[in-house]
Write a protein that binds this DNA or RNA. Structure first.
Lengths: 332, 332
DNA sequence: TTGTACGCGTTATCAA
DNA sequence: TTGATAACGCGTACAA
């Protein structure tokens, strides 16, 4: 049972109103009683009850963050960025995982709503357009990370998938590759679609006509396994390079190449997307598209705070850049 | 402005008490009005206000989790495990990062207290014994992950560092190594101490006398850099094997070996501790001690829930096991 | 300068 | 079967 301002009031022989004011250094309370009460509060181990304050304020100073899974090297940094900005502004962060399950995702959002979070941040949602209709009812700002949707309370911060993918594939083309495969995963359909689009744009620009049997789309949660599994098909199509929709796909392919004695990048150039930490720990180190992950989280949270402070906010698309490492090389 | 039960009451022409009961399927309300009100509630888009409920219940159904940093492949899984257990039990998770800064850590805990979380989980704390005195005042269960402390409300779930480290070093000894170095990092003093203890125990058991100049203790936040930096000293002492206190240290050393053309494991055997994901993506794959990370989080949360349900709970020490991969080999 | 009374949204007690 | 009232902890308009 925690100490309340009424408890302090009783001991101090004043009303709880006076205590409330003294603790907030309200000017109308005499310096003397203010000091006395603040001292007393500390002595009695008083801690303000934010729950009660929230009820009164109609503001919980709380943000709900929905991620697909926390155990994802990509999400991790985004959450980290968001949390640090939130805390510095006096907000606390609720974290919920959707595990790539739309039902769970809506469930988490619903719980957040019940807890009266002031705003919600959602990363790589799978609920898609459902949001637009379902979430406007909540009437609080919702910032989508890497997933644009239109709606009254909907905002987004995203990385330029199309252009990023295009840059990666242009890099492969500049190395002399022509038979360039695309490996995607439909678990995140929108990102996959945009990155494939970038891939196609690069080919088109170079006058290379795309081939359906060089485009692979997996449907599993385990990107590493998928990358490995696709390798044979890809070689059968005599691809000399592959652009993977995510680094984990690329890593799976890399490991699989090592197992089967396929030299990377000599026999096969591999490029990824995301620039997760693992990218420079594998060997050869992975050429990839760097996403400003922490910044993504920070920006999303800053946007939320701006909106809560009545400022306006514009959707943002962050550029991402090519990082050339060791897994891509000139076509021999 | 959200819909409240009073709003519904007005529309339905009943008292808000009746609405409250109807929504909870209270038996004393007629089936008819119950149905009518539930329908109305859905139609009006009513969402219960947990904040108000919490004020009344003196229970927020909320757990605060403090991690050093979210951007740590180890923490990530622990949080993931904890979150899933919490949510299934109807609890929400507050996440706060201490960034290895004791001041921040206490700050986060204080905020959690103000928010009246029902319990707190702290991973790899740096505050140490400060907790025992400081945190008992909060009078809620606190579960420490990988950091034992004694106190009335203090519980812990930890991995058996000593035995784990000992197993790793015994593995190296069994491969014929005698000049085995230890590489630690004092940023996490307690874990470091225990793992060094396990290292010494293994040497002693094998009748090898420890040498001070084979024991290295770094003091930087960047384990990868530290591992690299120590490599020369270690070679100068003609160590043939090294046991690293964390996988990141081992990875740093591994990468540095590759750069300088030192063959692993032929010229130097390297063993780590943690079994983070990266361990099987580096090449050679890292021999290490596997920690049941997700289980650690799950168990901690389960313990919290048990305590909140009035059950008793016992501190737990989980075994961890050796995973032999490619970075260790027979002394040639 | 301080105190009284009310309300935030909900549930529980008691009465009708 | 339903309703009026009080209470959770706090802040604030108004009164003293």
């Amino acid at each position: 049972m925690s100490i309340t301002i009424k408890d302090i009031a009783k001991v101090a022989g004043v009303s709880h109103t006076t205590v409330s004011r003294a603790l907030k250094n309200h000017p109308s309370i005499s310096a003397e009683t203010t000091a006395r009460i603040q001292h007393l509060a500390r002595e009695m181990g008083y801690t303000p009850n934010i729950v009660a304050q929230s009820l009164l304020n109609r503001r919980t100073n709380t943000i709900g963050m929905v991620v697909t899974t926390i155990a994802d090297p990509f999400m991790t940094m985004v959450v980290d960025g968001a949390e640090s900005v939130a805390r510095q502004a006096g907000y606390s962060l609720f974290l919920g995982a959707s595990h790539n399950n739309p039902r769970d995702e809506l469930d988490v959002v619903k719980t957040f709503h019940q807890r009266r979070v002031d705003a919600i941040i959602v990363t790589s949602s799978r609920v898609g357009s459902l949001y637009a209709t379902e979430l406007e009812k909540i009437e609080i700002p919702i910032v989508l990370i890497n997933d644009q949707q239109d709606g009254k309370y909907l905002y987004s911060v995203a990385v330029d998938d199309i252009h990023g993918a295009q840059t990666a594939v242009e890099h492969l083309i500049s190395l002399g590759h022509r038979r360039i495969a695309y490996l995607g995963n439909t678990v995140r359909p929108e990102a996959n679609r945009r990155r494939r689009e970038g891939y196609l744009a690069a080919l088109k620009k170079a006058g290379i006509s795309p081939e359906t049997n060089l485009i692979f789309d997996g449907v599993t949660g385990d990107d590493v396994a998928l990358g490995a599994q696709i390798l044979d098909d890809l070689r059968a199509q005599s691809a000399t390079a592959v652009f993977c929709c995510t680094d984990m796909l690329a890593v799976g392919m890399l490991l699989s190449c090592r197992e089967r004695g396929i030299a990377v990048p000599e026999q096969l150039s591999i490029a990824g997307f995301d620039d997760i930490d693992i990218a420079h720990f594998v060997s050869p180190q992975l050429t990839t598209i760097h996403q400003p992950r922490r910044q993504l989280g920070q920006l999303a949270m800053q946007m939320v705070l701006d909106l809560l402070n009545g400022k306006s906010a514009n959707n943002q698309i962050l550029p991402c850049e090519l990082v050339v490492r060791e897994s891509t090389a000139k076509l021999s």
